[in-house]
């Protein structure tokens, strides 16, 4: 893992009506164990709730976990909210059930990394640290 001079703040959020939180909870814990400050807001978060918490908590990263297939409709709303609040520097990553064909579109939207099924906790933690370091350089 790369060196960071300060504690990285991450919001782990589950947008939409999807209740599958096994992955989100595991990631939240793994990132905490890796020394990050993690805010996990639970299931059924609307895009505006997610942006609001990200703003209040002044996070570096938003990690979106979604398995319901609603990402193509919900993610743009989140990016709209970030833009409205001048939060373009917040790094957004995503994980869950996201088909390959959607990945380039999401990346075009501003999602910096998409972690599919089988991704490891360390891989996700390392990627987040790297993205924050690159941004802050």
């Amino acid at each position: 893992m790369l060196d960071v001079n300060r504690i990285i703040r991450v919001l782990v959020a589950k947008p939409g009506l999807d209740g599958h939180d096994r992955g989100a909870k595991i990631i939240a814990r793994a990132l905490r164990d890796a020394g990050m400050e993690v805010i996990y807001t639970g299931i059924r978060q609307t895009p505006s709730m997610i942006v609001e918490v990200a703003l209040q908590e002044d996070v570096d990263v938003i990690g979106l976990s979604i398995l319901s297939g609603a990402h193509m409709d919900l993610f743009p709303k989140i990016f709209e909210g970030l833009l409205e609040n001048n939060m373009e520097d917040v790094i957004v990553v995503a994980g869950g059930i996201i088909p390959d064909q959607d990945k380039p579109i999401l990346e075009g939207m501003g999602v910096r990394a998409v972690f599919g099924p089988g991704s490891s906790m360390s891989e996700i933690g390392d990627a987040i640290t790297k993205l924050v370091c690159e941004r802050d350089d």
Partner: peptide, 22 residues
């Protein structure tokens, strides 16, 4: 789908993106 399971009609704002998905 999840809106049906959580008591929202297909045209409810919270159903956005979820209709017919799961």
């Amino acid at each position: 789908d999840l809106p049906t399971q959580t008591g929202y009609d297909s045209d409810h704002p919270l159903a956005l993106g979820e209709v017919g998905r799961a």
